[in-house]
Design a protein around this nucleic acid. Structure first.
Lengths: 336, 336
DNA sequence: ATGAAAGCGCTAACAG
DNA sequence: CTGTTAGCGCTTTCAT
């Protein structure tokens, strides 16, 4: 089994190398008949261009990187799979770039990464999506970038879900179960998602006509432990909440842990809900009511939009994907 | 910022391109003085070889693939990170190759992958580790391969933990808590791990001097749902177990769900333990007693051993890494 | 121990 | 619309 080269295809199709190259790269100036013939030969010979030769000769690297901070979160790994889906479909390579989000030298780190590896573009994930200096530098270098769930929603290219509406709807669900004292455990302050989820909480409370008690808004940082601690604080309040909306599933899991630890029961004594629909949501007891974001699909779309922009600056945009409320067993009617 | 090429280094050091190349690739036939001088210039100019040029000109691809079946398991993503650690450290690229494990055409699929992408080697994960036909073909093609937790432990290159001992120790722990009727939920039959964990269960029971009741050995397939179903079966037994060892954490989570569903309590009414120490183990209530495998480290070592073999056939071997018992809250004394 | 020349397989720039 | 020529930056081969 010896490798088929572009020359072989050209000979077989009775055209020049360059014509084959044009067909492969969907460049203009090839007649439809020739195009067809070349495609047929490519298919028959199972020809695949040699990636390194392509990169070396051309000005594109066919390489994009995904920049991320927390390498072991479930969420990120789902996104990664999605980005990978998009890249593989278009024969791009994906480079994983774990970054310690230390604002000090992040710009220069990314800069050398981009230059050294000749990246064609980058996918940004929270909270790196919100580093203004980095975004500015990428623009200067003319490197297309695409963001997953950036805080600034009108930022050119990327994917978002309408988080405030999702949360407001979730609060509405709790209200419809009779809850009036609904608490919120906030996410990590550096993540834009925390901001939008809090906004959705406020809006949901208002829409449901419920009083906003600042004592019911607790600090968290997206981790299990922070959800656990925040819940203990809430339960110690003189007039504790009957429902808690945690800004993500990990914190909701922590909340359930804290409630169970006190010998209370979810949802009988208190309802808990989260956000993300990570695998854990189905695997804890009781199963978690949460907002489902199509995480993998979001990664894929972020990749697709980025590749559009790479092919043609000016293409690619901000895609809004739908969320869904996953009503499971951790929420129920307010205790009589 | 223009790219430094090997020519620039050569000129600066007053030698030929080829000499620089020799130093870079640690080839012989360069005097120590020259070597030093070249290294100094490389450092000063911050020179990095262009990966594509290297691949195109040479016979190595600097590319290894990780073959896997189930793309969304926590376990696999940890392993992947580890393999990535090893690759990045040695400037190799990692290609992710999700494969539908359908024994029929897996050999030819892998074959074309290896040939088309010119892989220098592959990392295999369960259950692909155990496909004899595939292993034979890789050997024929002279492609080095490294396995993570293969069933056959004397298979040349890879990483394992001593699973039978780990499980036997866990059973010993349960026995020391007074449990005598200890059940086991088996893993997926196609995975070698299932075999070893069952063996460890039998051995542990024997060592503890406990009777082996085949009715207490239930089928599972590593999923939450299969653990849930198996547990329901066990609890319906005329003389149900007081402790359950599930072959992985997901099934243990399912077991806890099934127990809670019946209004029973873990560990008061029944003890549950798992295997793997995935993130879920700390995030469910009660937190899960389990066997910790250093998953990411295992991926890294599989990568390291593979790269040794790539550099020099005959190098690389089977590494045994230590396990640890993570005693948490899901196991306790047998109910009086 | 070192170097010169000839590609690797493709695309860019320029001709027709 | 199509083809020719000259590299991309490195490693290989073969001299010296």
């Amino acid at each position: 089994m010896v490798r088929v080269r572009i020359e072989d295809v050209a000979a077989e199709a009775g055209v020049s190398m360059k014509t084959v190259s044009r067909v492969l790269n969907e460049e203009p100036n090839v007649s439809e008949r020739t195009r067809e013939r070349v495609r047929e030969v490519v298919e028959r010979l199972q020809y695949r261009p040699h990636p390194s030769a392509r990169v070396l000769a051309g000005r594109k690297s066919y390489l994009v990187a995904m920049l991320y901070d927390n390498p072991s979160s479930n969420y990120l790994m789902e996104v990664e799979q999605g980005v990978l889906d998009a890249c593989q479909a278009q024969h791009y390579n994906l480079m994983l770039a774990p970054l310690v989000y230390d604002a000090k030298d992040i710009v220069s780190k990314v800069e050398s990464l981009v230059l050294q590896s000749r990246l064609d573009g980058v996918v940004l994930t929270p909270p790196i999506t919100d580093d203004a200096a980095l975004l500015a530098r990428l623009d200067e270098l003319d490197i297309p970038w695409s963001s997953v769930s950036p805080t600034e929603r009108n930022r050119r290219i990327g994917v978002i879900v309408d988080e405030p509406s999702a949360v407001a709807e979730m609060i509405g669900h709790l209200a419809s179960l009779g809850h009036r004292r609904i608490a919120h455990i906030k996410g990590h302050p550096a993540h834009g998602a925390s901001h939008w989820r809090l906004a959705g909480y406020r809006e949901g409370m208002q829409r449901a006509g419920l009083a906003l008690d600042e004592a019911l808004i607790a600090d968290g940082e997206f981790s299990y432990d922070s959800g656990f601690a925040a819940t203990n604080g809430l339960l110690d309040l003189p007039d504790p909440p009957t429902a808690i909306f945690a800004a993500n599933d990990d914190m909701a899991a922590g909340a359930i842990g804290a409630v169970c630890e006190r010998g209370l029961s979810v949802p009988r004594d208190i309802s808990i809900c989260g956000f993300d629909d990570t695998p854990i949501a189905r695997h804890i007891y009781p199963s978690l009511t949460t907002v489902r974001q199509p995480t993998r699909e979001m990664g894929r779309l972020a990749g697709v939009e980025l590749l559009k922009a790479i092919r043609d600056r000016g293409q690619g945009g901000m895609v809004v994907v739908p969320y869904t409320l996953q009503l499971r067993r951790s929420t129920g009617p307010r205790k009589a």
